[in-house]
Design a protein around this nucleic acid. Structure first.
Lengths: 204, 204
DNA sequence: AATCGGTGATTGAATATTCAATCAACAATG
DNA sequence: CATTGTTGATTGAATATTCAATCACCGATT
């Protein structure tokens, strides 16, 4: 049971953080399509007009929110908790998948999926997500390369394998947020089998 | 180059089909979030009021549209074009991936992703997609079981592997529709490598 | 008194939905 | 055959609602 650093404190002191939390709550409760300034205001202990004091528009607020969240989420990825590449890969995926599964985050995860789906029509969103994707894929590649150097992994095309791993994670996220009966346990198990059969050098 | 049965005729005779096509066009052009009855009406050679003659509400129209499209898409999946399970798998994935990549469908695919992301908040959407998911996964499992029977595939847990394959396809779709530089070629290549290393019995 | 954090009421545009009124086709009736 | 009623398709205009954004104003702190 890894300790959970919560995304927000119960009642944040500074206003921006309070707005972010209100947005988080409203987004979780209503989803992106039904997210209105009114509803953000409802989750906020100050008035909704105040939001316009801090942001030029609803869109500006959401863009800031997205960048805030992605940054914070990158920050929670466990770093350097092991030397061996296979261990690092395992720890990383455990973390990511536990976030996908976490019941308390369901609604929010769904909202993030909506946001991302929306990003085709919003350049600012798009840019945020692209940055996040590159970061994540890069992290995976570094681990893969280390694994190959360490003689733990076969000498695979790291770009290709990293693409696949990212695709699997995104597929799992998408399913978890949009499917009624996602079988994430099965995916997790098969992910291990994939790594085993495709990456791991076995010297038993 | 597989022959392309188009999703719609140029000018459909019956009204429902015409409405479906108008909805398709409007959805492709504007995306789900900006889809209005007005805009569907604009793609339609009749008046927008007529839409309410055929459907009770915007939502009812969209639900019918979704079921219409999913059914039609299921219909285009190539069936029984080969006996060998590995061939069937290959043909199936070729088809699906070509649909994901197809530039003419980009905008529509994006809209479907938005719709799906939306389904967390719309039971009717949700049901449609779930039905579609079950259908697809079932098809994959049948092929896997045949492959094992034929001695072509290892005796894997078909439920688990099917889950993974579906996850990969959904991940690829999600990336193709929401990412700026999706590397689907890499995913495709790695998918083959996965099947090779995890499924195929090699008797060279 | 001037600035800053904050508010409730209000506005204007966008949008889904309704509706009364035609129109076209067609079947039954005289 | 001509007339008459009937039904579904179609329309343009009207209505009702939602929502982002603005504004005039308040109270405290400097």
């Amino acid at each position: 049971m890894p300790e959970r650093r919560d995304l927000f404190e119960a009642n944040p002191d500074d206003t921006r953080e309070a707005i972010m939390k209100a947005t988080y709550d409203a987004l979780s409760r209503h989803g992106y399509a039904d997210l209105t300034i009114q509803r953000i205001g409802d989750e906020f202990d100050k008035s909704k007009s105040l939001l316009y004091h801090h942001y030029d528009s609803k869109d500006a607020l959401l863009v800031d929110f997205l960048s805030f969240m992605l940054e914070r989420m990158e920050g929670t990825i466990p770093l350097e908790q092991a030397d061996a590449a296979d261990e690092r890969l395992r720890i990383g995926f455990d973390h990511v998948i536990s976030e996908i599964i976490d019941g308390d985050r369901q609604d929010f995860n769904r909202a993030m999926t909506e946001l991302r789906a929306q990003s085709a029509h919003d350049d600012a969103f798009c840019e945020q997500f692209s940055k996040n994707d590159r970061y994540f894929e890069q992290r995976v590649r570094v681990i893969l390369e280390a694994g190959i150097d360490q003689g733990l992994f076969h000498d695979v095309d790291t770009e290709q394998v990293a693409s696949m791993l990212v695709t699997i994670i995104q597929g799992a996220t998408f399913q978890a947020t949009t499917s009624t009966e996602p079988d994430l346990e099965a995916v997790r198990a098969e992910l291990d089998a994939y790594i085993e059969s495709r990456l791991l050098v076995d010297d038993a």
